[in-house]
Design a protein around this nucleic acid. Structure first.
Lengths: 336, 336
DNA sequence: CTGAAAGCGCTTACAG
DNA sequence: CTGAAAGCGCTTACAG
């Protein structure tokens, strides 16, 4: 079985009694192949168990038929985040019917940063989706310089000339803050995201914008890493430093979960004593006790849009927008 | 910048004043290159921003420098399973220092099953790790027939001539059953895994083996899909059909979590009225209330061993074992 | 130590 | 509709 390792086009052609050229045309379903030749080739392919060598084809066509999803995040972190699972679902949905394979690349813990660049720029893929960028990650710049089509998930902090898709974190956070003001809260804290990610910074700016003009202090700010544990730790710090707070806006639902656990443990009633707003609208949000008011962002749509944008670029579409912003919206529940 | 799309070896050679052959040798750090030539080439590479075209190299060398991890499971399922996160960590750890890139392939929901085979057999990777196989999945057979080195994670149900790494599910489950008997339980149920996966079947057989010879009935069996929800649903069926049960062995910790929630809701005290044993020893096991007695399996080691086995094969090592079994061990906690 | 040349397995104008 | 031929960008014996 694995003796005749891999028959080549040459052998198929010979077996079919045609040239390599027409064998190739027949296999790829191109026009200008006689019915007879087409059958002959099909039979030979079947008999020999031929599979086209994608590497050779790639070298000739300069197309691979696959794109990469790069996660600049340790794999095990990503794997436990429900947000990514939904982004991934959106990406697959955007890919459906496109004949493109998606290959996932995740950061190993102590990986030499360069592995990705070598792989991606080495012609293995036609383009890349890059999500969860931290700080001044040089990767997007490297890819762009190498001429690889790239779409970023989230606005990059570094100055790179790559298109990106983002959700409207600023206005979402702003509406969250305003909502807390509207329901009468006067000591509003926030658990912000990481300072080295635009999504963290934009939600913080948005929160500040929402608070602006109300005369209410905006000094109750602690940062978390978007995880439950991070949210819990930040909440503890907030309670210590601002024991009089009556509301908190967490920049992710997971952090809101952690914060609510700490509030419960501290005996603060939600929402009577402390109102809580999250961000994401994960599936768990409505099931929490109390159900979480949060900012909905279209997560699947986010993945789908990135994919669409990259595919469109690969197809040579022109006049594509350099960036796309997806809307967010406050979903009110019992936690406020 | 992305003007000079990609300089070729040819251009580097010319710029360095050497032949393509020595340029190639210099770049790949091969011997028999004069110091002078080596410097010349290094300079040219630097100036032109050369990156070797991996596709072309692959075609010439028949090696790609990457292996695939194939998950025969809808992506979003895998993404929320802590088990896979740890397997992945083990795989990366086994890969460290090997210069191999890992590419992840996950099943899209309604994907045409053939995409994987085309990709994998098309020369994109040097080998593949395949985990979470269901039933008679034809994939391993296709890969083996195509001559692609493959290592399976878990014994395949279908007859394929591929090496695999597995954990000792049988003895682990057996010791769980025996433990329940030893502590005096006389109506022992089990929440088994899927019937189309060897890991599910082996844990069920092991449980039966553990019960054998005790004269105790082994008819209280319900199947789940290894998830919390699946475990909860199975537990409800067990309570309905065997209300007198005094112990339950769940074939995964996640199913044990679901089962315990249902038991709590039904007012059954754990372990006084119903003893519970899980399988996996996930991080959550010791944090549950009560802490879960479970069968520990070396999850990271599982991933690391698969990787080692594949890498060894790629390096041409001979006499490699066709299958490797990793030991399991009962960890007793307060739930029994 | 170095270079000319063949070869990896395909695709694609070009000329019938 | 078909085939001879060039080309994709590398590597690697082979002969200096």
């Amino acid at each position: 079985m694995s003796q005749n390792a891999t028959p080549t086009l040459e052998e198929v052609a010979r077996a079919a009694g045609v040239s390599r050229a027409t064998a190739s045309r027949a296999i790829n379903g191109l026009p200008y192949v006689s019915e007879r030749a087409r059958e002959q080739v099909a039979r030979a392919v079947e008999v020999l168990g031929y599979r086209t060598n994608q590497v050779a084809r790639s070298l000739a066509t300069k197309r691979t038929g696959s794109i990469a999803l790069v996660m600049s995040e340790p794999g095990n972190f990503v794997l436990s985040d429900p947000f990514f699972a939904r982004v991934l679902r959106g990406i697959y949905s955007g890919l459906s019917g496109s004949q493109m394979q998606l290959v996932l690349l995740m950061n190993n813990e102590q990986d030499e940063e360069d592995g990705f660049a070598r792989y991606l720029c080495g012609g293995h893929v036609d383009g890349a989706l890059v999500v969860s960028l931290h700080g001044e990650d040089p990767l997007p710049g490297l890819l762009v310089d190498a001429g690889l089509p790239v779409v970023l998930g989230g606005r990059p902090l570094a100055r790179v000339d790559a298109p990106y898709v983002d959700v409207d974190n600023f206005n979402g956070a702003s509406s969250a803050a305003r909502h807390l003001i509207d329901i009468g809260r006067r000591r509003v804290a926030t658990i912000a995201g990481p300072e080295d990610m635009s999504v963290g910074m934009d939600r913080l700016s948005g929160w500040r914008r929402g608070m602006a003009g109300t005369g209410i202090a905006t000094d109750a700010v602690e940062h978390g890493d978007f995880t439950m544990e991070g949210g819990a730790a930040a909440m503890r710090r907030l309670l210590r430093n601002h024991p009089d707070l009556d509301a908190v806006f967490a920049a992710s639902d997971l952090m809101a979960v952690g914060a609510m656990q700490v509030l419960h443990a501290a005996g603060r009633r939600i929402p009577e004593e402390v109102a809580v707003v999250g961000f994401d609208n994960l599936d768990i949000a409505p099931t929490m006790s109390p159900p979480l008011t949060t900012v909905r962002q279209p997560i699947e749509e986010f993945g789908r849009t990135m994919t669409w944008r990259l595919l469109a670029q690969l197809e040579g579409e022109t006049g594509l927008p350099p960036s796309i912003m997806l809307p967010t919206e406050l979903v009110r529940r019992a936690s406020t």
